[in-house]
Simulated assay, not measured.
Amino acid sequence: MSKPFDMELFLAGVLTGSYATRQRHLRQAKLIQSEILERWQLETPWAWQRKHVAWLLVYRLGKRSEATRYYYVLTARLLARRLGRSWVLSL
């Protein structure tokens, strides 16, 4: 039996800022993870590709406000930094 993926532990090394900022990044990263899991059955960020995160930003968050999408882009960049990938993500 495998343990569920711990996003908080995954991002612990790259999370900085105030408590509220760290909690926002964790909440958004968990939502990104659940959306990608639901669509492509990819549970861990190591299996993700740029197209998965870009899909989320364009199609799932497309009708949200620009500010909301901006904060999700920041979280996605944080995930990319933790993965050691050079994804170019924009609004």
Rank of each mutant, 00 (worst) to 15 (best):
M1A: 06
K3D: 15
K3W: 06
K3E: 15
K3C: 05
P4I: 15
P4F: 12
F5K: 10
F5P: 07
D6R: 10
D6E: 13
D6V: 10
E8D: 12
L9W: 06
L9N: 12
F10K: 00
F10E: 00
L11D: 03
L11G: 02
A12W: 05
A12R: 12
A12H: 09
G13N: 11
G13H: 07
V14P: 00
V14E: 07
V14C: 00
T16C: 00
T16D: 03
G17Y: 10
G17I: 09
S18E: 11
S18L: 01
Y19V: 10
Y19L: 05
A20T: 09
A20P: 01
T21N: 09
R22I: 08
R22C: 11
R22S: 03
Q23R: 13
R24H: 06
R24V: 08
R24P: 01
R24I: 06
R24S: 13
H25W: 01
L26F: 05
L26Q: 08
R27C: 11
R27F: 12
R27V: 07
Q28P: 01
K30A: 06
K30R: 15
L31A: 11
I32M: 15
I32A: 10
I32W: 06
Q33Y: 02
Q33D: 02
Q33P: 01
S34E: 15
E35N: 03
I36N: 14
I36G: 09
L37P: 00
E38T: 04
E38M: 07
R39F: 04
R39D: 05
R39W: 07
W40G: 02
W40L: 12
L42P: 00
L42K: 11
E43L: 10
T44P: 05
T44R: 14
P45S: 02
W46G: 05
W48L: 11
W48G: 03
W48Q: 04
W48T: 09
R50P: 01
R50G: 00
R50E: 15
R50V: 15
K51Q: 06
K51P: 01
H52M: 07
H52W: 07
H52S: 06
V53Y: 02
V53S: 06
V53E: 04
L57R: 01
V58N: 08
V58L: 10
Y59T: 12
Y59R: 11
Y59G: 01
R60Y: 14
L61Y: 05
G62T: 11
R64Y: 11
R64I: 01
S65R: 04
S65N: 03
S65C: 03
S65H: 03
A67E: 10
T68S: 15
T68R: 04
V73L: 09
T75K: 07
T75L: 03
A76Q: 02
A76D: 00
A76N: 03
A76T: 02
R77Q: 15
R77Y: 04
R77C: 14
L78K: 07
L78Y: 06
R81F: 02
R81K: 14
R81V: 09
L83R: 08
L83S: 08
L83K: 10
R85L: 10
R85W: 12
S86D: 15
S86K: 14
S86G: 15
W87K: 10
V88R: 12
L89D: 07
S90G: 08
L91E: 14
L91M: 13
